[in-house]
């Protein structure tokens, strides 16, 4: 049986989104354009460097029904969202950490967002550290980091950057109940890249560790309470594959994801941060 949806990616997008191997892991659903075929592919992959929203809107106008954006940088997506609404197209964001299935999973399954949100009422501190290789643009790291934090915490108030330099950054703010949160970026090649999120509550907390999406190593979510330490089921699926699988679900069911709405919150936050 041939794939239902054909996929086209520029070399830059293919690289940024690990498209070849990810599409190969969903072979009944997605496949390359047949050789010699010249029409528009069903799905277009767009690299998330600056200008991606316009590129995605253009692809939609040219007839793509599905768009995957690999590692988008914060930018205004309101026109893209309107275009997607008009065309009934599906836009899925393949975010480095925030797209990991352990953070916001499918349906009613247990995930980090559920665990964190149920702890926010009695939160005393949310402490998070993102790690990436030296040479990484700290602003890009900050955006990957806040995308993950917003995915689980939903809302962060009074956010300010206290420092940002070649070794990383420190940012801080408040949770909904007024408790402090801190987000630190550390540039080092001594440790695997990833993000650690710790919520400390009155009688325990939640510990989340999300790895980079270049392998299917699972994120770890632990919920600590009077019952002990509960490890949520491990999901051996990378953020890349989970993004594509969501695309599949929406294309098949004719539904629309809320990726752009969620991303708009990151863009707004990022604009206030980098303006200062």
């Amino acid at each position: 049986m041939s794939a239902h949806f054909t996929v086209h990616a520029t070399p830059a997008a293919r690289e940024a989104g690990a498209v070849t191997e990810t599409v190969a892991s969903l072979p009944a659903t997605f496949g390359p354009m047949p050789a010699g075929h010249s029409g528009q592919a069903d799905v277009r992959v767009v690299a998330g460097s600056s200008g991606w929203a316009a590129e995605a809107a253009g692809a939609m106008q040219a007839g793509a029904r599905g768009i995957v954006v690999a590692n988008p940088v914060p930018e205004d997506t309101s026109e893209l969202a309107a275009a997607a609404d008009a065309a009934g197209a599906v836009v899925v964001l393949d975010l480095r950490w925030a797209a990991n299935p352990a953070l916001v999973g499918e349906g009613s399954g247990a995930d980090a967002r559920g665990a964190v949100r149920s702890g926010l009422g009695s939160a005393s501190l949310l402490d998070s550290v993102a790690t990436a290789a030296p040479g990484t643009d700290p602003r890009q790291l900050l955006s990957d980091h806040f995308a993950a934090l917003l995915a689980v915490a939903g809302r962060l108030d009074g956010v300010a950057i206290l420092r940002l330099d070649t070794s990383g950054y420190t940012a801080s703010g408040r949770l909904a109940n007024g408790a402090p949160f801190t987000a630190q970026g550390v540039l080092t090649a001594a440790r695997p890249a990833g993000v650690d999120i710790r919520l400390y509550t009155a009688d325990g907390g939640v510990a989340v560790r999300v790895p980079d999406p270049d392998a299917a190593w699972p994120a770890e979510v632990r919920v600590t309470g009077p019952h002990g330490d509960l490890l949520l089921p491990t999901l051996y699926e990378s953020a890349h594959r989970f993004a594509w699988r969501r695309l599949k679900e929406h294309l098949s069911a004719g539904t629309r994801p809320d990726d752009l709405a969620g991303f708009a919150r990151l863009t707004d936050l990022y604009a206030t941060l980098t303006a200062t």
Partner: peptide, 27 residues
Amino acid sequence: VRPFGYAVSLRTPSRVIELRAVMNGTW
């Protein structure tokens, strides 16, 4: 940090120092 603890961020010309503490009802 309530009920007892702190989140303190420090800097020297060459170092970043982050201090965190939470004393809560956890085991």
